[in-house]
Nucleic acid binder design. Structure first.
Lengths: 207, 207
DNA sequence: ATTATCTTTAACTATATGGTTAAGAATAAC
DNA sequence: GTTATTCTTAACCATATAGTTAAAGATAAT
C-alpha cells in the first residue's frame, strides 16, 4: 500500500511550503510538485488548503512544544539546567529554520485560529504552572526573586533572534559568521555566561 | 493643490498595509480604502503595486537606519552609550510595531530585491566601519576584546525579540505583562544590567 | 480474473485581484 | 469663461489559483 507513503510526502511537502510562505503565500500546485504528485491526488487525500494547513501546524506545534517543555521542567541544579535549556532551545530552533519566523508572521496574520490552537496544545502538554517551575529554579540561586518573566524573555531572545534575523544580520556582519561551525557552540557558551553573570553577579553586586 | 496630500495619504495607507501583510498579502483595494480614495486614482498616482511597495520600503529603511546608526556611533563613555543604545533601539522598534516582523518575513520571501536595497542604504549612510566603532567602545572597558558581533547580537536580540514575539508570549505569560506601562522601562533597565554584568563582570571573573 | 483502490491527465469552474478604460464630475489655474 | 488637472464611477480585461470532474490507466487485494 502506497497510501501512507504518499500522505507522508504530502505533509512533508506542505510543511515546507507553508512554513516558507504562510497560508496565503503557499501554492497547492507547489505542494503537489514537491510531493511528486498532481493536484487532483492532493485533493483526493486532503479536502482543502485550510484543512491541510491546520494538520501541518498542529504537528509542528506539538513537536516543538514537546522538546521544550521537557527541558524547562527537568530536575537539575541551576547552572546545568540553564546550559541544558539553552542548548535545547538552540537545537529546536536551528533544526526548524523556518518555524519561528513563520510563527511570528502568521500568528499576526491569522490572529483568531493560531493562538487558540497554540493555547490548546500548551494546556494539553503542560501540567502545573510552567512559570512557577522557572521561578523555583531561580530561587535556588543568588538570583532569588529575579523575575521569571524577564528570565524567560532573556533566554528566548538570545537563542531565537539571531537565527531569525540571520539573513538580515549577514548583510551587516558578513556572510561568513553564521556559516562557521563553531559559531553556534560559541554562541551557546556566550549566552550561558551572559545570563549567569548578568543575573547572578548583578544580584551579588546589589547586596 | 490637493496632490501632495493625497499622495501622502496613499503612502501612509500603503505603509500600513504592506508592513502588516507583505507584498503578496497586501491588497491594492485595501490601500485605496485606507487612503479614502478609489483604485483608479491609486493607479493614477502610482504605476503598480511593486513600484509603490519599493517607495514605501525605501522610506521605512531610511528612517530606521538613520535613528540607529547615529546612536551606535555617538561619542560617550561605555555605560551611558550602552544605555542610550538600548533606549534608542527599543524606541525605534516599539514605534514601528510591524517593521521588524515584516523585515524578517519579507527578507526571506523577496530574497533578491530587499537585501540589495538594504545594503545600498546601509552603505550610503554608514561612513567608516560600524563594527569597528562598537569594538572600540568595548575595548575601553573591562570587557576589552569581547567580540563586537556577540555584543551586537545580544543587544539586538534582547531589544527586538520580545516585541516581535509579543502575541506569542502573551499566550504564555498572560496578556497583562506587555500592557503595563512600566514594562518597557523595566525591560530597558534589565537589558542594561544584564549586558553590563554579563560582559564586564564575566571578564573580571575570568582574570 | 475481477474488483477496489490509487493515480494521472487534462479540461473545466469559480473567484480574487492587479490593472485598465472611458466618460464624466469636481476643482483649481489661467 | 475656458482650460488643465484631479477625482469618481463602473464596467471591463487578464491572470493566477483553489478546487472539481470525468475518463482512463496503474497497482494492489481478493
Amino acid at each position: 500500500m502506497a497510501i501512507k507513503n504518499v500522505k507522508e510526502q504530502i505533509i512533508k511537502a506542505a510543511t515546507k511550503e507553508f512554513l516558507a510562505s504562510g497560508l496565503e503565500g503557499a501554492r497547492m500546485q507547489a505542494i503537489a510538485d514537491k510531493a511528486g504528485i498532481n493536484k487532483a491526488l492532493l485533493h483526493y487525500y486532503f479536502e482543502s488548503k485550510e484543512k491541510l494547513y491546520f494538520i501541518v501546524l498542529k504537528a509542528q506545534f506539538s513537536d516543538m512544544i514537546a522538546g521544550l517543555l521537557q527541558t524547562f521542567g527537568s530536575e537539575e541544579d541551576f547552572e546545568p539546567w540553564l546550559k541544558h535549556l539553552i542548548r535545547t532551545v538552540l537545537k529546536e530552533i536551528t533544526s526548524r529554520p523556518h518555524f519561528s519566523r513563520f510563527m511570528l508572521w502568521e500568528l499576526n496574520a491569522q490572529k483568531k485560529q493560531l493562538p487558540r490552537l497554540f493555547q490548546e496544545l500548551l494546556k494539553e502538554r503542560m501540567q502545573g504552572s510552567f512559570m512557577q517551575k522557572i521561578q523555583a529554579k531561580l530561587d535556588q540561586t543568588a538570583a532569588a526573586a529575579y523575575p521569571a518573566e524577564q528570565f524567560l524573555l532573556n533566554v528566548l531572545s538570545l537563542c531565537i533572534y539571531p537565527g531569525l534575523a540571520r539573513p538580515l544580520l549577514e548583510q551587516v556582519l558578513g556572510k561568513e559568521l553564521f556559516a562557521s561551525k563553531d559559531f553556534i557552540t560559541a554562541r551557546e557558551e556566550d549566552i550561558f555566561q551572559l545570563i549567569k553573570y548578568g543575573i547572578l553577579e548583578r544580584k551579588r553586586a546589589e547586596i
